[in-house]
Design a protein around this nucleic acid. Structure first.
Lengths: 196, 196
DNA sequence: GCTGGATTCTAGCAACGCTAGCCACACTGT
DNA sequence: ACAGTGTGGCTAGCGTTGCTAGAATCCAGC
C-alpha cells in the first residue's frame, strides 16, 4: 500500500521532471531543440522512459501548455488586480497578455499555435485554459456595451491580442509600434467612455 | 542564344511545376505531407532536382507563399470593388480575408504562420505581400478617424483578422459565431458612422 | 538466496531534409 | 559525322527525427 503510493509518487515526480525539462529547454532554445533524445539525456533516463509517462512528444507539449496556461491565468489575474478601476482593466489585461506572449514564447506557442487538440474558448476545453479565458472575460465584460454579447466581445478581443502577439513576434509587424496597436485595439473594443 | 533561353524556359517551367505540386499537395493533405521524397515523386524527378531549383524545402514554401499572396491580393481587390461605397469596404475586405484563410489553409499557413523570414507590414517585405497589405489599407484608410494613424489602424485590423482566422481554424474558437466576431471587429475598428 | 514480475536500457526501424559522386546524355568544335 | 567536354540527373547514403521491440536488470516476496 504505502509501497504502492511511494512508487506512484516517484512516478509523478518524474513526470513533472520531464515536463519541467521540456519547458526549460523549449524556453531556452525553442521547441525545435526539444527532441526525445535531448530530453531524455536532460532528465538522465533513456528515451523509452518518456513513453512510459506520455503518449508521445505531443502529449509532453500538451502538459507544458497546461502548465503555461496556469501561469498566464495568474498573470492576467495579477494585472486585473493591479489595475485601478474597472475601466483600466482591459488595457492592463491586454498588456499582460501580450507581455506573456513576448516573454514566454515557447509556452505561448505550445498553448496557442502548435497543438491542435487543445480547444480554448469552448466548453470542452481543459480547466486551466478555461480559467485563462474567464480572466480575459472578467476584465472585458464590465465595459461591454449593453447590447454586446460579452462572450463574443471577449473572443474578438482575444483574437486581436493573439494576432498582435504572433505577428509581432514573427517579425511580420514592426515591434516598435506594438504599444500603439495594443492601445488602439483596447480603445476600440473596450473603451473607457462607453460602459454603462 | 535561343538555345540558352529555351533551356532557361524549361527550367522555369519545372520550377513552376515544383511550386504547383507543393501547393496542391499542401492544400490536399497539409504541409506535413509535403516531403521532398513525395514532392519529387509527384513531379517525376528525383529529390536532388528540387535542390537545383530551390535552396531547400523552406524556399519552396516561400515560393508557394508568394504565389498565395498574389491570390489573396486579388481576392481583397475583388471584394473592395464589389463593395458598394467606401463604408462597406472594411467589412467586405475582412470577409474576403477570413474566407481566404478558411478556404486556402495551406497557403495561409505558408504566408503567415510557418515561415519566419517573410516580413509583411514592413518596408523590406516582398512586393506581393506589400500589395496584400496595401489592399487592406486601401479599404480601411477612408473610414479612419482623422487622428488615427492609417498604417497603425490597418496593422491592428490585420492582427484581428489574423487572430480570427488562426484561432477559428485550429478549433480554439467556435466556428459558428465567426461572422458575428468579424462584424464586431469591423464595427469597432472601421465603423460606418465614424468617417468624416 | 532464490525466483517472478515489473522496469529500464540497448538496439533498431521507418521517414525526414539534404548531399556527394558517378554516369549518361546533349551540345560544341573540328 | 565524330570525338571531346561539360552540364544535369540519378543512385546511394549521412545524420537526425519520433517511436518501439526485445534483451537485460533490479527489486520485492518467499
Amino acid at each position: 500500500m504505502t509501497m504502492r503510493t511511494r512508487r506512484e509518487r516517484e512516478r509523478a515526480e518524474r513526470a513533472r521532471l520531464i515536463v519541467t525539462a521540456a519547458r526549460d529547454l523549449a524556453e531556452a532554445e525553442g521547441w525545435d531543440a526539444v527532441t526525445t533524445r535531448r530530453l531524455s539525456a536532460e532528465i538522465g533516463y533513456s528515451q523509452p522512459v518518456l513513453y512510459s509517462h506520455f503518449r508521445g512528444k505531443g502529449a509532453i507539449m500538451t502538459a507544458v501548455a497546461l502548465e503555461g496556461s496556469e501561469e498566464l491565468t495568474a498573470a492576467l489575474r495579477a494585472a486585473t488586480a493591479a489595475a485601478g478601476g474597472a475601466y483600466g482593466r482591459p488595457a492592463a489585461v491586454g498588456g499582460a497578455y501580450t507581455d506573456f506572449g513576448r516573454r514566454r514564447p515557447a509556452l505561448y506557442d505550445a498553448m496557442f499555435t502548435h497543438l491542435v487538440d487543445l480547444p480554448f474558448a469552448t466548453p470542452e476545453a481543459p480547466a486551466p485554459l478555461r480559467a485563462a479565458f474567464a480572466e480575459l472575460r472578467r476584465a472585458v465584460e464590465p465595459v461591454a456595451h449593453e447590447d454586446d454579447d460579452p462572450a463574443l466581445l471577449t473572443e474578438t478581443f482575444w483574437a486581436g491580442l493573439h494576432g498582435l502577439v504572433t505577428l509581432t513576434r514573427s517579425g511580420r509587424l514592426p515591434p516598435e509600434a506594438h504599444e500603439s496597436r495594443l492601445a488602439l485595439l483596447v480603445g476600440r473594443l473596450a473603451p473607457r467612455d462607453r460602459a454603462g
